[in-house]
Structures are given as structure tokens and as C-alpha cells.
């Protein structure tokens, strides 16, 4: 069975239906990209998968490693190995990045019946991983995302991904607001984390990111439905023609 299998997923927020029947399967080791214009439902899909309570699932099923994902609380989805890199990472003043990640990692380890890391083990791990994704060590001591630049916030998301080692990483517009250098660093971080065990779902507005993170499959999301799927060349095609073409096809 696939790592993630979404069948005919419908979801709404405040009575407005946003997802109107999504079907998608991601295998272990695969990187999928979802592209689509503003308002097509990209971020909604990411948040529904993470379990954001402001969205209501009105139909369909989601299986993650054979578990019914929709039945799980958001924290349990995370503990099962679903990670969402947020489009707008929130700030948590007064809580250091290190402290936050220790709480997170140990909650996950505990859930999986693994030994919680002590302070020394954790410190060693966090330094090693910060280095691997080129995160400035000073950011580890600063409060979570508090006063971080846009680029630092996104890099911090990738760093958390490296720390928590999920089986599925959903990156919601990780490229938004990044200059080209920051974009490259973030993409390098992601690429270093790609593995046979791990799937990625990269949500983006622009083809640009996909020249750095080469996807195995690309899906075009429009009006809450996937209107076309293909290989990485689909992204390039979109760059040339825009979404209008698909809009007509969908209509």
C-alpha cells in the first residue's frame, strides 16, 4: 500500500466547500508537487492532512501507512510521521527553539515506544542537524520563530523536519517570500532529507522551486480538484502556458 492514499477527499471551511474530491497516492521515496493558482485549495489540502480543526472533512478517506489518518488527533498524526512545513510558521515568544524541539521529539519518541532523549543526547543531535541544514546555531537559542526573518522561518521549518524525521513531509509554499539564495538553501536542505523511506508533498505556486527540488510527479490543483497529473515536465509546461489552459479543460 502507498505511504499516503487520499480517496475522494472533500473538505470545507465555514460552510464553503474547498476540496471537491481529491484523489492522490504517494509512495515511499517519492516526491510529489502540487501546483495551482491562489484559492485552488492547495493550502487547504495541507491543513486538512495535518488535522487543522478549522476545516471540516465532509467526505472521502485518507490512509497513511494503512492508518485512517482522519480519525487521528493532529498530534497523533505528527507522531505517526506526518510533518507539515507551514506557509506562515507561527511565533512562540519565550519558548526557545531547542526547548520546543526537545518537547516535540520526545513526545514523538514516547508515542512510538522509544526512549526519550536526555539533555546531552538531544543537544548533540540538534547541533548535528542544524549543521546539516545550515541553520545558524544562534537560532536554536532564540524563541521559536520570534523575530526571525522570512527566510529564517522557512529554514527553521526544514530544520524541524530534519530533527523530527517524519515519513511524510508536506511543504506548504515553502518558497513563498524567499529570495533566490534562501530558496536554494531551503531546497538543498530538502534534497538532503529525501530518502527511500520518506515521501514529500511539495505545494507551490511557482515552477521555480521545482527546478531545485525535482519532483517525481506533478499535480495541477484547480477549484478543489486535481485536473492533471504528470511527470516533472508538467511543471515546465505550466510555466509556459499558465493555469488558464487547465481551467478551460476543467470547465
Amino acid at each position: 500500500m502507498a505511504l499516503l492514499e487520499i480517496r475522494n477527499l472533500h473538505a470545507r471551511i465555514q460552510g464553503v466547500e474547498i476540496l471537491k474530491g481529491i484523489d492522490l497516492a504517494i509512495e515511499r521515496g517519492e516526491t510529489h508537487a502540487i501546483m495551482g493558482p491562489n484559492g485552488s485549495g492547495k493550502s487547504t489540502l495541507a491543513k486538512v492532512l495535518a488535522g487543522d480543526p478549522s476545516y471540516e472533512v465532509t467526505g472521502g478517506e485518507v490512509y497513511f501507512q494503512d492508518r485512517n489518518l482522519l480519525e487521528l488527533a493532529p498530534e497523533d498524526r505528527a507522531r505517526e510521521g506526518v510533518f507539515l512545513g507551514f506557509q506562515y510558521p507561527v511565533e512562540i515568544p519565550g519558548v526557545s527553539n531547542t526547548y520546543f524541539l526537545k518537547a516535540a521529539l520526545n513526545a514523538i519518541r514516547k508515542y512510538r515506544g522509544e526512549k526519550e532523549l536526555d539533555a546531552m543526547e538531544f543537544l548533540q543531535l540538534i547541533k548535528e542537524r542544524a549543521k546539516s541544514v545550515k541553520l545558524d546555531e544562534a537560532l536554536l537559542r532564540r524563541p521559536v520563530n520570534d523575530g526571525f526573518s522570512g527566510g529564517e522561518k522557512k529554514r527553521n521549518e526544514i530544520f524541524q523536519l530534519a530533527m523530527l524525521e517524519p515519513y511524510l513531509a508536506i511543504l506548504d509554499e515553502t518558497d513563498s517570500g524567499l529570495d533566490i539564495d534562501a530558496l536554494r538553501t531551503v531546497a538543498e536542505g530538502v534534497n538532503s532529507l529525501r530518502s527511500e523511506e520518506r515521501g514529500f508533498l511539495v505545494i507551490t505556486h511557482y515552477q521555480r522551486l521545482l527546478s531545485y527540488i525535482i519532483p517525481d510527479k506533478v499535480h495541477v490543483l484547480l477549484h478543489g480538484r486535481i485536473v492533471k497529473s504528470g511527470g516533472k515536465e508538467l511543471a515546465e509546461e505550466l510555466e509556459g502556458s499558465g493555469y488558464a489552459l487547465f481551467d478551460e479543460a476543467a470547465a
Partner: peptide, 17 residues
């Protein structure tokens, strides 16, 4: 939600925040 998404339960998240 951010804390939850990192595996931290709501009660723990509140105390953390």
C-alpha cells in the same frame, strides 16, 4: 495547531506557550 503538528499535545502546548 503548530505545537500539535510537531507532536505536542494540546495541554502541553498551552503550558509551553
Amino acid at each position: 495547531l503548530y505545537c500539535n503538528q510537531r507532536g505536542i499535545a494540546t495541554e502541553d502546548a498551552v503550558s509551553l506557550i
